[in-house]
Design a protein around this nucleic acid. Structure first.
Length: 899
RNA sequence: AGGCUCGUAGCUCAGUUGGUUAGAGCGCCACCUUGACACGGUGGAGGUCUGGGGUUCGAGUCCCCACGAGCCUACCA
């Protein structure tokens, strides 16, 4: 039967098919009652704001690699998918979509708007699930969860009520971050800071009742309309006499007191500060300390309100300009200096955040943080990379209360009701019928919703069934590992740890691996809103999903960010193609072999692959022993690397094994055997080739699932088997390890490379076979060469290789030497003496320099007495080799009469 | 303001506890359109590891300073 396989790998032809197959066959369904150690991982739920970006691709690839790897190694594996309703982000997306259609979402009303968002959720969520399917996520779709599903909401209310009852959630009026565009309060984390050039305006406030005045400096003049005091440091002699007096607030003509407060830095500005309790966090504190009035001068959308006198109705920044002008006109503007300041921006809208006084719900964090700090200190949760652990501690030890409520419509409605009659606040799991205090039935539920992270923080246990004691919770909680980007360490990871400990008494996961961010060429974080994001699906179409997975992980060294480059993608695609063609080689030759009448299926049945490598004539051929030894080494490296999240190391080691060892050496070496006249030898070669290729595919499968699945199904012995994804991962077997074979084959490689180098130097016809001589003083080396002569002759393009123990250095012709052996090509034409002399001179200088530095070190008494014996011996051996080589070079030079 | 990370070949990046001749991919040069693969093969050139100082028998690797790049945290008007 002739197999049809395309010459070049075309991922588009096969990926979609397998993606569908994995879903349809339900291959990744978790079974808590099945045997096997747990490997459970919950997805960091993507936001339903649109589609997955390149960062998700990296995240999912890492998760999926480890999941597939564990699954193949026999673990009871769960990869739980799902999505986050992403309150503010999603609401913004839908509001904008509606606005583009000329619809004001507020006019729509809450209920209608929510319907629109649910429709959007269906669309975006569907797209995301399709993307996940296409990038190969091997998750259990039957367990998909959503943070705003009715079941999830029930648990969110439960948690809110419990925390309220424990007095960890409370309602308070304080200064909060307000976004005038999103029209909601924000937590401190949702405010990003940006350094911007600005000014410091010095404004003169006249003292009431005399001719004195106080000059204050401010970066936000418009807030002066809400000033309720001027503060000076009580120790400051310049102002001491004014404390207790009053100033007249310019523009407003209001008298406000001069107070003493030690918060004032005498060195900064003028040493006198205007106090605006309703618009500045410091001033707010000062105001409360000194019982000052709090005057809010702005509206929700950032305009000046009725308290702003003549400026009422103006935009806050327009008001700033006008106020400065007016002050100047009145001669009250003392001076203006440049002043760089960091402004707080809304993470989502990039609007300047306005500090405002507002009544909101808060969560007390200190008591929750303490056990979470302990858990990490005790090592119950490991955080990788190490430096993030320190960030964790720093953050947790300085944690502040969390503003929970949001003035949005999309989210979990706060389960609090207010009595219209007695103002009682009722927090309950279900809507109460009447006021618990006065019995009135006029109850109004809080309009606000919860910060989206309030629900996400419950993700690891709610998705497994908590608060019910489900088999899933029993088996898979705590989960094994969390993989996510370090940018949401504080938003999400720390909160999950706190909530997990608080509500389940257990850590939510045993390890956290925080991966890199994918950045633009300029080093910036990729962002859709800035247009610098990359669409993974488009890239996958161009290069193949496997190549993308491979490329991203090959660059994912822990602790460093990734700058995705086109070059790397080319390389990854080439690798996929290389494997494809290695398989093609196999299939094409298999056809020829099968025409010879062998029953290969029987020889290479699945259970026989474990017995490889097979022997021929009572002995495993060197090439096979060597390949399996290399495979064992590779498996060791891969295992160690995956267990420490060093994806790049694992992937590079696989690459090296497949391309260099398997393709460049193994396949090239065994070519003649496969279809050779000796059927018995050919059969063994095929058995070993199959076993090796089969193992190599399984080795690669977690990284490149599509390609390996496709090729694995084309292997002849796989006809009845379902998927490589549920095959056993190869284990580095003891009998594969073979350091003698590794050493011996390395010698052959060196011999072949040496001949090739001489040939290239001499510019011999690349197709012409020539005769050569080999010499070594080491009998073992000579016999190893003699035993593998056929392969050497073929790969080095030689007609013969005469073996002797006479050094060839002083012989004529083209000689190249190492400390172990000499090789001479027997060639009628003379060597280009000048070129050879130049090459030898360079070698000579290099060796002489190296030897000299080693001699110097070995002559150093302190080195000899302090360095470990192993190092000293190694250096001595290396010097001996260097000297032998140098001697040979010098001999050659004199023999060639080099100057 | 504090903290963190990075600065290694033309480019993009590896380099685990300090140890003998610092690696890979791409690009480059030469040759090879060979029956798995030109998304290929063979051979080769090319870094003294940003700069300075220190610890050490020994430093790309540890410490200090400087310069450059990026990130995070922060209520100095």
């Amino acid at each position: 039967m002739a197999r049809e396989i395309a010459k070049a790998y075309d991922p588009q032809q096969i990926e979609g098919r397998w993606a569908e197959f994995w879903v349809k066959e339900n291959l990744f369904r978790a079974d808590p009652s099945a045997p096997g150690d747990r490997f459970a991982i919950v997805i960091p739920p993507p936001n339903v704001t649109g589609s997955l970006h390149i960062g998700h691709m990296l995240n999912h690839t890492e998760i999926d690699i480890l999941t597939r790897w564990h699954r193949m190694r026999g673990f009871n594996t769960l990869y739980l998918p799902g999505m986050d309703h992403a309150g503010i982000s999603t609401q913004r997306v839908v509001v904008k979509k509606l606005a583009d259609q000329g619809i004001d979402y507020r006019a729509l009303g809450r209920e209608e708007f929510e319907k629109k968002v649910w429709a959007w959720k269906a669309e975006s969520g569907g797209r995301i699930n399709k993307q996940m399917e296409l990038i190969g996520d091997s998750c259990d779709w039957s367990r998909e969860k959503f943070t705003l599903s009715p079941e999830y909401s029930r648990v969110v209310r439960e948690v809110f009520v419990r925390l309220y009852e424990e007095k960890l959630i409370y309602r308070d009026t304080r200064l909060v971050n307000w976004c005038p565009e999103c029209l909601t309060v924000l937590s401190d984390l949702e405010v990003v800071h940006e350094e911007r050039p600005g000014h410091l305006w010095y404004i003169r406030y006249p003292v009431a009742g005399n001719s004195e005045s106080v000059v204050v400096a401010t970066t936000r003049p418009e807030t002066m309309l809400g000033d309720t005091a001027v503060a000076v440091n009580p120790e400051d002699e310049r102002y001491q006499h004014l404390i207790g007096k009053k100033v007249i607030l310019p523009l407003m003509n209001r008298e406000i007191p001069i107070i003493g407060d030690s918060m004032v830095d005498r060195e900064f500005g003028t040493g006198a500060v205007k106090i605006t309790p309703a618009h500045d966090p410091n001033d707010f504190e000062a105001g409360r300390r000194n019982r000052l009035a709090e005057i809010d001068v702005m509206t929700d959308d950032g305009k000046m309100n009725a308290n702003a006198g003549a400026y009422t109705g103006m935009d806050r920044f327009a008001a700033r300009k006008k106020i400065v002008q007016d002050l100047e006109a009145q001669g009250l503007l003392e001076k203006i200096t440049d002043h760089a300041l960091s402004v707080g921006l809304c993470e989502r809208s990039r609007t300047v955040v306005e500090p405002r006084i507002s009544t909101q719900w808060f969560c007390k964090m200190k008591p929750l943080a303490e056990p979470a700090i302990l858990a990490v200190e005790r090592g119950e949760i490991s955080i990788v990379p190490e430096n993030r652990r320190e960030e964790y501690f720093h953050w947790m030890r300085n944690i502040r209360d969390w503003t929970l409520s949001r003035q949005l419509w999309w989210g979990h409605r706060i389960p609090a009701w207010y009595c219209a009659d007695c103002s009682e606040v009722i927090v309950a799991r279900e809507a109460p019928q009447k006021c618990a205090k006065c019995g009135a039935q006029k109850l109004r539920q809080d309009e606000d919703v919860l910060d989206t992270w309030f629900s996400s923080q419950l993700w690891p246990f709610v998705t497994l069934g908590w608060p019910d004691e489900t088999p899933d919770l029993e088996k898979y909680y705590p989960t094994s590992l969390l993989i996510t980007g370090y940018d949401i360490l504080f938003f999400w990871v720390v909160r999950m740890i706190m909530m997990g400990l608080h509500f389940t008494g257990k850590v939510p996961f045993h390890a956290v691996y925080l991966h890199s961010l994918v950045r633009t060429a300029g080093g910036e974080k990729m962002s859709k809103s800035k247009g610098t994001g990359l669409d993974p699906v488009a890239l996958n179409e161009k290069y193949g999903t496997d190549a993308m997975r491979f490329c991203l992980t090959s660059m994912a060294a822990p602790g460093t960010d990734i700058v995705l480059s086109e070059d790397r993608l080319f390389g990854a695609r080439a690798f996929a193609n290389k494997i494809w063609n290695a398989a093609r080689f196999l299939f094409v030759n298999l056809d020829k072999f099968e025409e010879g009448g062998a029953k290969l299926e029987a020889l290479a049945a699945p259970d026989t692959r474990e017995k490889a490598p097979y022997a021929f004539g009572g002995r495993v051929p060197l090439i096979d022993a060597w390949l399996f030894a290399r495979l064992a080494d590779t498996l060791d490296v891969v295992k160690a690397a995956f267990l420490t999240y060093r994806f790049h190391e694992a992937v590079q080691s696989i690459y090296q094994f497949f391309w260099n060892d398997f393709c460049d050496w193994y396949i090239e070496w065994i070519k003649p055997e496969l279809n050779g006249a000796n059927r018995e030898r050919a059969t063994v070669a095929w058995q070993n080739l199959f076993a090796a290729f089969d193992a190599a595919l399984r080795l690669l499968h977690p990284v490149m699932p599509f390609l390996t699945e496709e090729l694995w199904h084309q292997l002849p012995q796989r006809a009845g088997a379902k998927s490589i994804a549920i095959e056993r991962y190869p284990e580095a077997r003891a009998e594969w390890r073979n350091s003698a074979a590794l050493q011996e084959f390395a010698l052959l490689q060196e011999v072949i490379a040496t001949v090739r180098a001489i040939r290239a130097d001499m510019k011999l016809d690349p197709k012409k076979r020539v005769a050569a001589e080999f010499s070594s003083g080491d009998a073992k080396v000579r016999s190893m060469i003699a035993a593998n002569l056929d392969g050497i002759l073929r790969l080095a393009l030689l007609t013969e290789l005469a073996i002797s123990d006479v050094t060839l250095a002083q012989a004529g012709g083209a000689v190249r030497s190492t400390s172990l052996f000499d090789i001479r090509i027997v060639h009628a034409e003379s060597v280009n003496a000048a070129a050879e002399c130049a090459r030898l001179k360079k070698e000579q200088e290099r060796l002489a320099k190296n030897n000299a530095s080693k001699e110097k070190q070995l002559g150093d008494e302190t080195f000899l007495s302090r360095a470990p014996e192993k190092i000293v011996q190694g250096l001595k051996a290396s010097l001996a080799e260097g000297r032998t080589e140098l001697a040979k070079i010098e001999e050659r030079r004199s023999q060639l009469n080099c100057s």
